[in-house]
Design a protein around this nucleic acid. Structure first.
Lengths: 234, 234
DNA sequence: GCAAAAGTGTTAGAACTACACCCATGC
DNA sequence: GCATGGGTGTAGTTCTAACACTTTTGC
């Protein structure tokens, strides 16, 4: 018993924060939700959403709590990204920060709530200067987002439940920052067999109207269980 | 200034450990280096190499230090894997553990030194029961290893500088746990243009002897800078 | 001379890429 | 009737996957 105490007592404790990299998709642009930092150092600068973890919650729980508490956003796709541990990454104190990325569907959410917290959506092609090492966190998140969106259906998290193919394509174009041939894109995404075509049409963005589709999670899970691997042409 | 102190003072500090998942390749098998745990709980069980970080070192530095100090292994390929933060993952205390995976070339190393530390190589297909959540760390590392070895030349870290194609193939077969067609494998790996054929032959494993090859890091870097993406057939 | 591992090419089918026009509708 | 965005098919090329025999040499 003495040994336990000695072993764990010799370890040094550090502050542990979570930083949330929150992506959204709006007006055919990939966006990042940034917050006004209210503490020194760099108070007033644009920042990722961040806070310290609590003693009785896991990292994942902490990430969810922080996102919910400070934005009201719930039930959001989140994934741990990286543990950032440079000694001097935060001049205020030594803080180990675990970054998470979150993908949210902008339309569904309460814009007012977000603004109440001094938050603002920025297009990723036009980000403000971010505090501390947050820019490098975002760069890494974008790299991972690109990598994963091709092989996992995470892109759908950025869209409302019903979406059109032109809109889905536009999302991929925003993520990869390139034009995609619409015939090839449609073939590839429809061949995957994970989209359900609905009767209904979206009528705002064109006269002809585009059919709504829905991502079929069940089909996707069945397919992956049988060794199928999604691969979207981009 | 008061605000700084308040902000950082409200954060809770936790123990932060590094756990190293050390892979090697020997006798045509992928192996994991395990250590006898000397502290409770689960003293005597097989464990990954782990220790707490220090206040004045980054996570990467800590991982390197721990690996070197406890095995004498230096200049090793290491990469951060994941931050494991379940509240009760270690019954001894709340510990956030950052896992790293390391790829080492077994032949180069001092087996004696490793044994002095109560360490032992286990084939990944025959691992002992591991303490705490270390098995899940290893499972995850294997998943990432497979994913990366196809697209990044990390496999070479597991081999000595000079190696033969049959041996390289055998490494890939061990990683992916499947047989690979030798004609296709050779075509694919040679086409990549990152191997240098040497004059010399390896004469131990066959009468005919197999040519040695060397991984050409410079060529690889040039290629990747020009947007080239490695893709080895497995 | 034979056993044991190293080395070598081809072909059919699948997947990828590039490319241009008609359709439906609101105004 | 025309402007706007939605929707569709094909052909050449490349990549993939499956397959079996010859070479070298130590014993």
């Amino acid at each position: 018993m003495k040994r336990i105490i000695q072993y764990y007592a010799e370890g040094i404790k550090e502050l542990i924060a979570i930083d949330c990299i929150i992506f959204g998709f709006d007006q055919n642009e990939l966006k990042l939700l940034c917050f006004k930092r209210i503490v020194e150092p760099e108070a007033g600068g644009w920042s990722l959403l961040g806070s310290f973890i609590q003693h009785d919650e896991s990292l994942d729980q902490a990430a969810k709590r922080i996102l919910f508490k400070l934005t009201g956003l719930d039930n959001v796709y989140m994934r741990q990204l990286y543990a950032h541990g440079e000694v001097d990454r935060d001049p205020g104190a030594r803080v180990i920060s675990i970054s998470y990325f979150a993908l949210i569907n902008i339309q569904d959410r309460d814009h007012q709530l977000i603004e109440d917290y001094g938050a603002k959506w920025f297009s990723i092609s036009n980000l403000p200067k971010l505090v501390l090492d947050h820019q490098s966190m975002v760069d890494y998140a974008l790299k991972i987002l690109k990598k994963e969106a091709k092989y996992k259906p995470i892109g759908f998290e950025l869209l409302p439940e019903k979406f059109t193919l032109p809109r889905l394509q536009s999302l991929y174009e925003a993520m990869y920052q390139k034009n995609i041939d619409n015939r090839n894109f449609r073939k590839s995404i429809l061949k995957a067999g994970i989209l359900e075509k609905l009767e209904e049409k979206e009528r705002h963005s064109s006269k002809r109207g585009a059919y709504f589709y829905r991502f079929n999670k069940e089909t996707y899970q069945e397919l992956t269980e049988n060794g199928y691997y999604l691969d979207i042409v981009v």
